[in-house]
Design a protein around this nucleic acid. Structure first.
Lengths: 337, 337
DNA sequence: CTGAAAGCGCTAACAT
DNA sequence: ATGTTAGCGCTTTCAG
């Protein structure tokens, strides 16, 4: 293997060929176990290739085959556990499928999303996993024009790309049902603002909001419930919860909100769950270190990752894609309701 | 820009050249703003390149220039905030420097570390950022044989690679001093086991342990202090803390330990800090959601990231590397001491 | 079964 | 100022 060499020239197929007194064609056939080569010349080639420390130049291979063996992963950031767990699952799954992953972060900036898509396409990635921050015809046609499979996660992109994710609407509706079943007759639903530029993709959050409304209506508590999606929200939530007479729970569109609300309630003397219920969504890792245990909605991010890789590889190999359908979720009861 | 095209052939420099009635050489000069071309022909080329939607085939460019514009980042995992923050800072910094990042996870497996190093080298990365899980002559010579700059983070690799990180020994010694200054006369130092295969790189943890000993000696409390590095550790720590008569603090080699100890102490009635002090190390994000506020040691991971990119780019461009030296740290007092 | 040769798209050295 | 050409290392015809 002669590692330790420092500036010696690269070991190419040509070099191996010369060393064996054969042509690069034969070396290639040997290296890939392709037919059309004598068994013992193949062994001889393989042996010297190993001795010389040959390893394929993946750029060159990618240039000629059109397959680079790489996949791009485009996320908002790595600050939220959803993304880190997703990235972990994707990287591992892709590795198992023989692909190496680029990781690109958009910071929720449409410009960066676009720039990364272009850069990755120019790098010849075989496919892209995208958590889209934009939506609409422009990105959709751009994504389709990339000419390589793109799988979206969390926020879908219409017909432009295959999608993997949970059924946010249904999950949130079930969360409301769970809250109602615990005896709460009023829900304060906490969500980031859903207004703003129309090209921003808030599909997942919109689905959750729709799920809240659906669930609240089904439980007959929509009338006295309330959506808080302003900023700052914490005082508004506090005030809403202080309304006397009705058992009120704060239902958060994601755990992060609950993690902000909990210490605030503690600081201002609102006891959870005696004075107000609290429920999150996503079941992020941090919850393991939080008391009281937060009620939340759980789903296996690894499952999202593996399904995404599965679909991507199916598209790449021309196999039939596995049947679509959302990744399952489940309600996690906690001490906060 | 004609996006929306689906299966049309690639727009190459040749195509642009033909469309302009010039040669690929001129197109190349125009595209790179290189001298040796008439101003108005350059404009004409640039214009048609844009109209045709030309974008460079980065694999081809990398093949000929030997610079792929990519950098590999090899980490243990993305489960710990140190790594996610580091990855975030690196990806952003590399992006600003015109590089795209591969992210590879070793899961602390020497075999995977080696495999990733090889794969990334074969992909023609311009450089590698490595958090090494191994040490010793084998990996050192292998890293040097890669022939591209490798920067280590957290665990150094001797002379084989430039290194960026904090002064773990000194930081932990200061942590002990802080604990002692708060009136504790006994420290239980909590660390993962440092035994095991000799090729495993535990440099950072070893430095921290050395720092503990140094600090405890300086404070004159080494004698009655204690190192716990067994597994399971929690009962041992509990028992150690219950010793009456002496003010005891648990000093953790990382915040994660403190996050385990805290709820356990709460569960078994040991009040923090009345019955026992507690201090972490790393100041991870999760601490923002933990009460009581944990005393810890802080350092700016973004600084580690930016310095790493800086050194890498300097090595790549043949510039003088910035002067070495550890990234600064600081003690963060908390309610747990 | 094996060798020769033609590119993949780009850059760079050399002509003109 | 511009055109031509020779590769980078690999895969893939097409001959022999």
């Amino acid at each position: 293997m002669d590692r330790g060499r420092l500036q010696t020239t690269r070991v190419t197929t040509k070099l191996v060929a010369d060393a064996c007194g054969v042509s690069v064609g034969s070396v290639d056939r040997a290296l890939h176990g392709r037919p059309g080569i004598n068994a013992e010349t193949r062994e001889r080639i393989l042996e010297t290739a190993r001795q010389l420390g040959y390893s394929p130049h993946l750029l060159a291979r990618g240039l000629v085959t059109g397959r680079s063996g790489t996949v791009g992963i485009i996320l908002f950031d790595l600050a939220h556990q959803f993304f880190t767990q997703l990235a972990t699952a994707l990287i591992a799954g892709l590795r198992a499928a023989g692909k190496v992953a680029y990781v690109a972060l958009t910071d929720k900036d449409p410009g960066q999303e676009r720039a990364w898509l272009e850069t990755l396409a120019n790098l010849g990635v075989d496919g892209i996993v995208l958590v889209p921050i934009t939506k609409g015809p422009e990105i959709e046609s751009f994504v389709q024009g990339i000419g390589r499979p793109v799988i979206t996660v969390a926020n879908p992109l219409g017909e432009a790309a295959e999608h993997v994710g949970i059924d946010n609407r249904r999950a949130m509706a079930e969360a409301v049902a769970h809250v109602a079943a615990r005896g709460y007759t009023r829900v304060v639903y906490l969500s980031p603002p859903l207004s703003g530029p129309p090209e921003i993709n808030r599909a997942a959050l919109e689905e959750r909001l729709a799920g809240f409304e659906e669930g609240a209506r089904a439980a007959g508590i929509l009338g006295c419930s309330q959506v808080v999606s302003c900023h700052p929200y914490i005082e508004v939530v506090e005030e809403a919860v202080r309304k006397p007479g009705i058992r009120t729970a704060v239902l958060c569109s994601s755990d992060m909100y609950a993690l902000k609300v909990l210490p605030h309630f503690r600081a201002c003397g609102i006891r959870v769950p005696q004075d107000a219920g609290l429920m999150g969504f996503d079941n992020i890792e941090t919850l393991r270190y939080v008391t009281p245990a937060l009620a939340t909605v759980d789903y296996r991010i690894e499952e999202i990752g593996s399904r995404t890789v599965e679909r991507l590889m199916a598209a790449l190999e021309g196999r039939a894609a596995p049947p679509p359908g959302p990744v399952p979720h489940r309600i996690v009861p906690g001490e906060t309701l």
